[in-house]
């Protein structure tokens, strides 16, 4: 073999792909490591027939959407019985579609918000085991699990701020991304900063509302700038 020696490969830093790099909808992974060996199982069915706020909410939601679908269909059926020419058809069709869409645009966000609130109420019925890493509950969760926040707002108009932060967030690493309105035509609310408060363990949220910012509700997430992990949500409602 002469003066050469057998060469060795360096130890790899890892041998498998990182599969879980979407942390947007972070929900706790199994803390006991069962993920590594057991095939994923579907979560328990959401739509329960039992009592409780979740079941009621789901039933309510179904009723709502069924109602407007039925109304749209009834309208269309009524319309289809009328004589028409192509041009009139297209014009009236547009009116019809706009009407249905407007109805839903008003109803669906309300429905989703209602459902979201209900889902948060009762995690046990939602099929998820509670863990230390779940999202803070807006209703029913111990307050100690959220971090205290001092809010400073500069605005000429009344502003309502709602902020939720996961426990153990590092104040110096937090950053709030721009807040968006559901109406995509409204500009993003950007002048937001999160800094450690003088009082230990608290976080200071500074928010400036431009005069030109249209009224409405703006929402977004708070992330850890180091690793991109979502640490909380921020919602701002600007009055007219």
């Amino acid at each position: 073999m002469g003066d050469r020696k057998r060469l060795h490969r360096d130890d790899p830093t890892r041998i498998a792909p990182v599969r879980n790099f979407s942390k947007l909808y972070s929900r706790s992974s199994s803390p006991n490591g069962t993920h590594a060996t057991k095939a994923a199982q579907p979560d328990a069915p959401r739509r329960t027939t039992g009592s409780g706020p979740l079941a009621e909410g789901v039933e309510l939601a179904y009723n709502v959407i069924e109602k407007y679908i039925a109304e749209g269909r009834q309208t269309a059926e009524g319309f289809s019985n009328q004589p028409y020419v192509t041009r009139a058809l297209n014009d009236n069709l547009q009116v019809l579609v706009e009407r249905v869409l407007r109805f839903q645009a008003e109803m669906l966000p309300l429905w989703i918000e209602t459902l979201a609130t209900l889902v948060k109420v009762d995690p046990a019925q939602n099929g998820y085991a509670p863990s230390s890493d779940v999202w803070p509950r807006s209703n029913g969760a111990p307050k100690a699990e959220t971090m205290a926040v001092t809010i400073e707002v500069v605005s000429l108009r009344p502003v309502q701020v709602s902020v939720e932060l996961r426990p153990n967030s590092e104040p110096q690493s937090l950053v709030a991304l721009g807040l968006s309105a559901v109406d995509s035509g409204k500009p993003i609310l950007k002048d937001i900063s999160l800094v450690p408060d003088e009082i230990a363990g608290r976080i200071k949220l500074r928010l400036r509302i431009p005069e030109s910012q249209p009224p409405g509700t703006y929402s977004g997430v708070i992330v850890n700038r180091e690793n991109g992990e979502t640490r909380g949500t921020l919602s701002v409602r600007i009055a007219d």
Binding site: L24, I65, I69, R73, A76, S180, V221, T233
Partner: peptide, 27 residues
Amino acid sequence: IATTAALIEAVEMLELAFAPRSIYPID
């Protein structure tokens, strides 16, 4: 047609819900 339109709008809401900064919970 209205049924389909209704579903389309519902799916548009779904797109919003999946948007990167959505605050809607996965559930």
